[in-house]
Design a binder for these strands. Sequence first.
DNA 1: CCAAAAGTGTTATTAATACACCCATGC
DNA 2: GCATGGGTGTATTAATAACACTTTTGG
Lengths: 228, 228
Amino acid sequence: MTHYSGYDRFNIAVDCIIFGFDNEGLKLLLLKRSFEPAKGKWSLMGGFLKEEESLDDAAARVLENLTGLQNVYMEQLAAFGDVGRDPGDRVISAAYFALINIDDSDRALVEKHNAHWVLFKEVPDLIFDHNAMVIRALKRLRRKAATEPIGFNLLPEKFTLTQLQRMYEAVFQHELDKRNFRKKILQMNVLEKLEEKDKESSKRGAYLYCFNEQKYHDLISEGSTFGI
Amino acid sequence: MTHYSGYDRFNIAVDCIIFGFDNEGLKLLLLKRSFEPAKGKWSLMGGFLKEEESLDDAAARVLENLTGLQNVYMEQLAAFGDVGRDPGDRVISAAYFALINIDDSDRALVEKHNAHWVLFKEVPDLIFDHNAMVIRALKRLRRKAATEPIGFNLLPEKFTLTQLQRMYEAVFQHELDKRNFRKKILQMNVLEKLEEKDKESSKRGAYLYCFNEQKYHDLISEGSTFGI
DNA sequence: CCAAAAGTGTTATTAATACACCCATGC
DNA sequence: GCATGGGTGTATTAATAACACTTTTGG
């Protein structure tokens, strides 16, 4: 016996805007829809909410189904609830965005779903209101990446300062000054400089760094903030 | 015949975080819940989504039911979807926040709903996850009010610079320097100075201003941004 | 030896902050 | 004439932006 009988009930979906980053730039993981309506069209990865799971759990499940990844950085963007947004039926969708390192994703799984990493600048027409979701996700990503240390989720555990700068340049879509960038990020003292060097992209080799959660907390607790 | 049969369906609620402002400070419009479960407890104003309306429409309807107001500044905060968030039944709630001028609201309607304007600092324990919604709404309000001209929605059409400053002080919960504040807001050139003076709060009288949408658009289109 | 990326400080400009006195008026 | 809130400018400090050369090393 429910307390709230007599009210309309709805299908609820979660749709995932999955950001990735590599040498080519900022990318989205998109797939060709395998069922009607809009079968064969480009789409975000989605799924329906189940009775026994939270929205956050559903989004994590959908992401894991596609990428094989758990414990990924995810954040709810908003709920999309226009009446005609899905021509198949009335569906309310909670959109989530995720930041992952492309190399961590399970390539076989991704291929099985007929999914592809697409450069953000080249995102095609997507079904329903998915383009609107993507645009809002980028806006949110830009804002948050500028003020919180979430961008690191797009990189491997160990990265060079140049890689880090390229990542921010891809997110913000404009170039940064190398010296000012390094000054700023190093002054915040949230990175740990490793002994190792990366020799892949230069002969000289570049020192590898990793983000240090503890250092970040120290920064915050002394009243400072992260900012690029 | 629906395309998406076989998936669970859910009640969907909208809950409204209604901000107001007067001489006493920043306030929230809260009500004592008139039905089970949690009857008699403090709560946000809410309602259930109907088949024929969008989430935004539902939020606007719920707000109008309580305040009598239409065309109010409203923005979706997020969807809240934890499994046990509402002990009455599984309900997914889309939280919206609204900014209104307290004097514009229909006092009789507000009283009829057993609703009260409560100082933000004195918000009591609310049902379910409503306190969490309120905290996130304030965070969002602070961020957006600092970078977009939404704070004006908390004031009457015509206001003095002191009123404007008090509003921002109430939102940010810290004092601002009078001269720096006036310099900043006037330099942006988004206010229109009226001939009229307000004589209510001083003998000398203070010039009234109003926000000018056109001037704001001019500011934006020349590449500048609003900021307090 | 040279191409290619790594690394490194200083100056100039701009924005943010701190701060105190006179003005107008109703009582 | 005095208490009350309205109104105004400058100097200091901090943050941001602009900018060019040396280093290392594999080929």
